[in-house]
Nucleic acid binder design. Structure first.
Lengths: 342, 342
DNA sequence: TACCAAAATACAATCGATTGTATTTTGGTA
DNA sequence: TACCAAAATACAATCGATTGTATTTTGGTA
């Protein structure tokens, strides 16, 4: 039952060999002769020996483990990113500890502590909506843990990020609406502290400016971008004394909330109001009308972020070159923005 | 920069106290006087001391870590289950290492080795489609690691499982089709080695029998239940010399593949063929026609499985009572099966 | 002040593997 | 056979924290 107790010392004792030689043999060191190695490996298999990584990691002060912090595992974008991270890590012999902040700063701080105590070799994260203060992340870096942000990043100096070009995507989405004849365009934005939402908003602003459309502050609505927020937003928009003909939502979920509400009210999308979302959730291609959105591959972002992190883990801290990788994203045109006057 | 090097020995030396006392103070032992504790804790904070879990875990031979193995993280059902597991584990102070088998037995075996080497306290898993041989799982148990299956389980004697009643759900789905006037009903089944698919098939068979409908072997199609398999299956069904009027698919993905193909061919769902799926993926409520399916809450299953595993970890191995928890599942009636003659 | 039990603290071994250094063995050469 | 460099193996410390036992300190009582 309990053959998990076999250690190199047991093998050493049985074979009347020193445990250091056993260790070297099992690590295929050239300092041990083939004959001895074979004998040791045979005995190890016979006894069902499994190396204890805890001991090994402690001695080497390296865990071959990455920590991943996302706001919510079950969101499609994040589970795809995790899949990309896991695959990349697995190939390089790393394990992945997954944690979710559930958008709470307190939980995020606590998770950072736990990962730190477990001595993960690096952390990949997408920050929570509440994260305005970066002290816990700066501390983590000070302790020598490598950190790479993906998607939702922080404005920490000298850090690596894997992002999409939120500014460009925001610009493209908004210009697409303008090209489809929209002139009064609302923007559903996220929490103001997050860079990605700041940049999507900047893209929106730039597109309006390019086309000589005045930015109206009351058309820019910040929220947590949940489905209910989309509903609240669209209600506000509909109560305005003038007619809004386009919406650029900083995520799909809020856009879908708005679409559902508009459907209930009998207001036509895209004829009355054209809508563009952001993220390309699975549901977006299936909903009626299908949602025009910005495609961002979570899998690709996760893979890239993990590759970057692993390359940094190999370097000495002095040799690390921080970089920000911007992945391409593209507008997927669907029915929610396809107007006649296009 | 490198204050990750602070150990209890550093604190001990600075305060001229033994490291064992420091350790006890930081663990709030009653063997250390309040005055000493305060002094130690103050100094620990000052130096930015973080306990090294590797060392602590090695000594205690307990890691407060659970391993989770799923076929694919990004599948909605599994990411929901993982979310449920993570939340439960987090509350009890456990971390979660997530791995995906990608439906490959080789990868699954390797993952089991890795988790075992990392000395996780327990493993929660849903086996891959290729898993026919359970040796690697029996070995894991022999080494004293607790194991709980959820959803896709193995027929290992004396093990704990958290499942839904696949037989009953399969029965309900099939009877629902019969009640909607279907008489020649095909079943899309999964790999034959998996218990869940065996049981769904048994439910299908029992419903047919109850209503005096003969089981035709050529109407039961086994596959990996991907979207393309759904397309292949429906092609086979359409090429039969008689007309099939109902399909019970063992998952939503294959059902959706079939629906899309039928739409292309201009065959009406549910009028010509009624379809029932299984799992209630997000997409299923949104597709046209919306898909009647069996609802299974991944979050609930994950939560229940984690709770069960954690309770077993606390017990001595001799005191463990293995149990199989069957969660309720229910049929969600949508358009894909709503026939006039109902 | 002497004594003593209880409380507080120190000592030392341990979890299992790794690794720098010291010692022994091997096998070739003079 | 003596010698020696190279190869193989053994010794011993170490990674940090924990914990059973031994020792010291405390503070109350006779």
């Amino acid at each position: 039952m309990e053959n998990n107790k076999v250690t190199i010392h047991d093998i050493a004792k049985i074979l009347s060999i020193d445990s250091s030689t056993v260790s070297r043999a099992l690590n295929n060191s050239s300092r041990v002769t083939k004959k001895t190695k074979d004998k040791i490996i045979a005995k190890a298999n016979e006894l069902g020996y499994k190396r204890n990584h805890l001991a090994s990691n402690l001695r080497k002060s390296k865990t071959f483990t990455l920590g991943v912090i996302v706001p919510r595992i079950s969101r499609h974008f994040f589970s795809s990113a995790i899949a990309g991270i896991e695959e990349t890590a697995y190939k390089k012999g790393y394990s992945v500890i997954i944690c979710q902040s559930l958008e709470q700063l307190e939980r995020e701080k606590n998770i950072v502590e736990i990962l730190s105590a477990n001595r993960v070799d690096g952390v990949l994260m997408s920050v929570s909506m509440e994260t305005e203060n970066y002290q816990h992340l700066e501390d983590l870096k000070k302790r020598g843990t490598r950190l790479v942000f993906f998607d939702r990043h922080c404005d920490i100096p000298d850090n690596s990020n894997v992002l999409i070009d939120d500014f460009q995507a925001g610009f493209d989405a908004t210009e697409h609406l303008i090209n489809n004849g929209c002139r009064i365009i609302s923007h559903f934005s996220g929490p103001k502290n997050l860079e990605i939402y700041k940049n999507r908003f900047k893209g929106y602003k730039a597109a309006l400016q390019k086309h000589g459309i005045k930015l109206r502050d009351e058309l820019v609505l910040s929220s947590s971008l949940m489905e209910k927020d989309g509903v609240e937003n669209i209600k506000k928009i509909l109560s305005l004394p003038y007619k809004v003909d386009g919406i650029f939502s900083a995520n799909d979920v809020a856009a879908i909330g708005a679409i559902q509400y508009l459907k209930e009210r009998g207001i036509k999308v895209p004829e009355d109001i054209a809508i563009v979302g952001f993220s390309n959730e699975t549901i977006s291609s299936v909903i009626e009308p299908s949602l025009t959105t910005i495609n961002q591959s979570g899998f690709e972002i996760g893979k890239t972020a993990a590759t970057l992190l692993l390359s940094q883990i190999k370097e000495n801290s002095s040799d690390i070159i921080n970089e920000t990788i911007i992945l391409k994203s593209s507008l997927i045109e669907r029915k929610s923005s396809a107007r006649q006057n296009n």
